[in-house]
Computed example of a mutant assay.
Amino acid sequence: MAKKIEIFDPALCCPTGVCGPDVDPELTRISRLHLKLVKNGYHVKRYNLAQEPDPFVTHKGVNELLEKEGPDALPAVVVDGKLAFYNRYPTMEEFSEWLGLDKEELQTKEPEKKINLL
């Protein structure tokens, strides 16, 4: 059975990571994968500390992490209600294991046209 996955992002101006001149490829990877999984009916939720602070307060494990380590510990990943790890995003292998999917099913298409922001 597929797991419920929650990703607690640090304070971001947007979830895609394309908000400035320095694009974070890890954020764009997670953003594309998140959208694909949600579109396919999987329970994967992302929370942005800047825009949705309530889940950071109400989830006991994440709240304790923030009190102990501060916001630099984010991102934090919760699987089926339990804090799985923090300070990084899940790998394709972890998503594959949690959701019972083959890694190839998780692959997202790279955009055909790349935008040069410089």
Rank of each mutant, 00 (worst) to 15 (best):
1 M>V: 13
2 A>F: 01
2 A>Y: 00
2 A>I: 00
4 K>H: 12
6 E>A: 11
7 I>W: 09
8 F>R: 00
9 D>F: 06
10 P>A: 11
11 A>Q: 07
15 P>F: 09
15 P>A: 13
19 C>E: 06
19 C>Y: 08
22 D>N: 14
24 D>I: 11
24 D>N: 15
25 P>S: 04
26 E>F: 07
26 E>N: 14
27 L>C: 07
30 I>Q: 13
32 R>G: 06
35 L>N: 06
35 L>Y: 01
36 K>T: 08
37 L>V: 07
37 L>E: 04
38 V>F: 11
38 V>S: 11
39 K>W: 00
40 N>I: 09
40 N>D: 15
41 G>F: 11
42 Y>N: 04
49 L>V: 01
50 A>K: 05
52 E>L: 04
52 E>C: 10
54 D>F: 01
55 P>W: 03
58 T>P: 00
58 T>D: 04
59 H>S: 08
60 K>L: 13
60 K>V: 14
60 K>T: 13
63 N>A: 15
63 N>E: 13
66 L>V: 06
67 E>W: 00
69 E>D: 11
70 G>V: 11
72 D>W: 03
74 L>M: 12
75 P>A: 05
79 V>N: 03
80 D>T: 12
82 K>G: 02
83 L>F: 04
84 A>K: 06
86 Y>N: 12
90 P>R: 01
92 M>W: 01
92 M>R: 06
94 E>W: 05
95 F>D: 00
95 F>A: 03
97 E>F: 02
98 W>H: 10
99 L>I: 08
100 G>R: 03
101 L>I: 08
102 D>Y: 01
102 D>A: 14
103 K>V: 15
103 K>F: 07
104 E>I: 12
106 L>I: 06
107 Q>N: 14
108 T>R: 00
108 T>S: 09
109 K>E: 15
110 E>V: 14
111 P>D: 13
